[in-house]
């Protein structure tokens, strides 16, 4: 009994975790308008999705934002991880602590604090405010991804580079960056996904000038059921799954 009980339990939990997603995917191909009953196979919701100009625009806006936010946070996050790994400096513990707190704090706390800042400083709510906010919440995740990679890394290589006369910048470029490349890619993919999915922070810091996908979905699903959302959700699911598999593939391949 003690053999099959844990396995049954695990299977059960996984079924519950995946059931809603499965239903969503199946219903995205449902031709029935009401959304609850099966009316036959159809692609009409995908069609109506791509005929919706505002939706397509929001999709592009989101992708562009996620691309820039992931890139900026990967650059800053990787540099931070390198600094934390290599240097002694004052306030190192505080820096780590602050990153940890950013990662742990409820999103809504971060959201309103940034809204307060943007309105006070006079940054118009739109692309720039979204970008600053997204980079901020992605940053700690990139830092820990890169730190994890650096912690398992042979210290003699950078020492050797230094002995051969390389300065910090050259050493970082020629030795460290190639070593942390997989972590950079994984961190970038994670940042991209976090940015693409964020609802809470974006609700506060976005303006009418730059509409992004999660907020458009939010306004659609607050009332009633919209079959287009099934189609959109399925697309997002396939997209995220691809990203995740890519990131896992990069990380495991580099370990060998």
């Amino acid at each position: 009994m003690s053999r099959w009980l844990p396995k049954t339990y695990l299977t059960l939990v996984y079924i519950l975790l995946y059931l809603p997603i499965l239903v969503l995917v199946v219903f995205s191909f449902n031709s029935s308008r009401t959304g609850y009953r099966w009316g036959g196979l159809s692609l009409e919701w995908y069609q109506s999705l791509f005929n919706n100009h505002a939706m397509v625009q929001a999709m592009w806006n989101s992708l562009w934002l996620a691309l820039v936010a992931a890139t900026v946070s990967t650059i800053i996050g990787a540099l931070t991880a390198l600094a934390l790994h290599r240097y002694r400096f004052r306030g190192k513990r505080m820096l780590r602590g602050m990153l940890f707190v950013v990662m742990m704090s409820p999103e809504i706390v971060l959201a309103i604090s940034l809204l307060a800042l943007f309105l006070l400083v006079g940054i118009q709510l739109g692309f720039i405010s979204l970008l600053l906010a997204h980079v901020t919440f992605c940053l700690p995740f990139v830092v820990i991804t890169v730190m994890a990679r650096l912690s398992g890394f042979d210290e003699s290589l950078p020492e050797a580079a230094r002995d051969l006369g390389a300065n910090d910048f050259t050493m970082t470029r020629t030795v460290l960056i190639p070593v942390i490349m997989p972590a950079l890619l994984a961190g970038w993919l994670l940042g991209f996904t976090l940015s693409l999915d964020d609802v809470v922070v974006s609700t506060f810091v976005s303006g009418p000038s730059y509409e992004i996908l999660p907020l458009r979905i939010y306004s659609m699903v607050r009332v009633g059921l919209k079959p287009e959302v099934n189609a959109l959700g399925t697309l997002l699911l396939v997209f995220s799954l691809t990203m995740l598999m890519l990131s896992q593939w990069i990380l495991t391949r580099s370990k060998r």
């Binding site: 997603i21 959700g233 799954l241």
Partner: peptide
């Protein structure tokens, strides 16, 4: 890694 909003909607 998948959109939390979409998953909440799926529960609906």
């Amino acid at each position: 890694w998948t959109n939390s909003l979409v998953r909440t909607y799926a529960l609906k």
